[in-house]
Design a protein around this nucleic acid. Sequence first.
DNA 1: ATTGACTCTCAAGCAACTTGAGGGTGTAGG
DNA 2: CCTACACCCTCAAGTTGCTTGAGAGTCAAT
Lengths: 275, 275
Amino acid sequence: MFRIGDFSRLCLVPVSALRYYDELGLLKPTRVDSATGYRYYSASQLPRLNRLLALKDMGLSLEQIARLLDDNLTPEQIRGMLKIKQVELQQQLEEGQIRLGRIEAWLEQFEQENNMPDYDVIIKKVAPLRVAEVRGVAPAMDKLGPTLDGLFDEVMGYIARQGAKMVEPSITVYYDQEMCDRDINVGASISYEASTLPDTDRVKTVELPGFDKMASVIHRGSFATLHQAYEAISKWLEANGYRVNGPSRELNLEYERGGDQSKFVTEIQFPVEKA
Amino acid sequence: MFRIGDFSRLCLVPVSALRYYDELGLLKPTRVDSATGYRYYSASQLPRLNRLLALKDMGLSLEQIARLLDDNLTPEQIRGMLKIKQVELQQQLEEGQIRLGRIEAWLEQFEQENNMPDYDVIIKKVAPLRVAEVRGVAPAMDKLGPTLDGLFDEVMGYIARQGAKMVEPSITVYYDQEMCDRDINVGASISYEASTLPDTDRVKTVELPGFDKMASVIHRGSFATLHQAYEAISKWLEANGYRVNGPSRELNLEYERGGDQSKFVTEIQFPVEKA
DNA sequence: ATTGACTCTCAAGCAACTTGAGGGTGTAGG
DNA sequence: CCTACACCCTCAAGTTGCTTGAGAGTCAAT
């Protein structure tokens, strides 16, 4: 019979942890002096404690361990729990790899510019969104602004005529597979609040698909410098091993036609997959 | 200006998290209505939030992020923080690999025996230990018991004559590089409580070295079945890619000469390194 | 009898939020 | 103008696997 301190030295588990395991019922002392409350452990409890530690080392929670140790589960159930844990662990490892890649890419960029990067790319999941959209083609890059203005006027007018309510933000979708600077296929989309709206020749209601992995970057200021954001996101995607797998979008989070361009906020989104 | 719910939909961060970031001072709303307490955010706060999320994705704590965002650290300091985090992450990944290996080994064993393994191997760190030791050679496996009994008698007698106090448990050290079944080099060691004890011809005070990685397994019951524990630990070490790099030990955690063998508890320890 | 090492039982703290209770706001429809 | 109803607020407590600390009792030796 060992007192808790001696047992702790024996198994190299802190006294506080032993008391905690007692409280959870994971490892009750063989005997507890009812007068003093002192816990007494015996060496024959070490196998159980070791199994506990082994399972903990595999990443199981104490609650799961309790079930493994006490409820007499069938071997099949136990195998199942471990298999699940295995998959979980593998996912965690992959995430860790991704994290590490991110940090490396950041450090690299840091070396180049010797300062914090101006743009931060994050990956998020976006839900599908029902919008009213007008498509059009801008003959050249420098006609893109006016073209879009026209398209958005059409959508906004249409939604207003239907008596529906526009929902921020307005979204530009770039449907070209490759970046080209002439004959750019774009869609001007605005989300609305209404059950169904009839399509017209020009305006269609479509569902912008959702994506599990959407790379996103925020640009603040004039559209004239938007290309910097595009450069940043492209570089990042390459460095982190992602590939674009769908049409990109621009969300006008803060925008007013003819307003102060320095106040504009635009989000650029690229649906991506791991290369 | 967005209310918290709209802003939350925009950036895909839960409302509760936004409130939490406000509380920590990580992302204060642009305006808080002093009458109602309503938080109002603007789109121009998204870059900061995105940087926050990007850093969080790299595994930094919110406290670290706060320092990165607010205290204007030199680029060098920032680089340093990320480098440290990088190393941390790499270590975590390695640990994860090890965990995964453990779980796989367990599952494999499970397939073979179709039940939970009888022995759980754990890796722990043991500190150096000052002991009094007598070395001897057992001519053959079946003489090991009596040989050790004699050696332990010598050590115990010596310690008693010196007026020192024995400290549990008694330890057998196996000094042979390879397992052989004749002429086995063993040491019978017992830790004691005293500043210094003089060496004699037979009894030496030595320091059993500490090891960062000690593979340990607990055997319960007669010494006759101890080989099963050895088999289990050997298999485990092979499956998990460890190599023995020092003399093994047996710790008699529960033992009484001539006592009920079924009550014995013995710990087997192998110092190891990753192969 | 006293010292010093040990033990006990709470309670609180860590990180990064989430959940819920209890109560005030904002606005659209009747 | 009143009433839903969705939204917002604050504050407290829960999550995991313990650790740390306060305040008090216990054990063995001197």
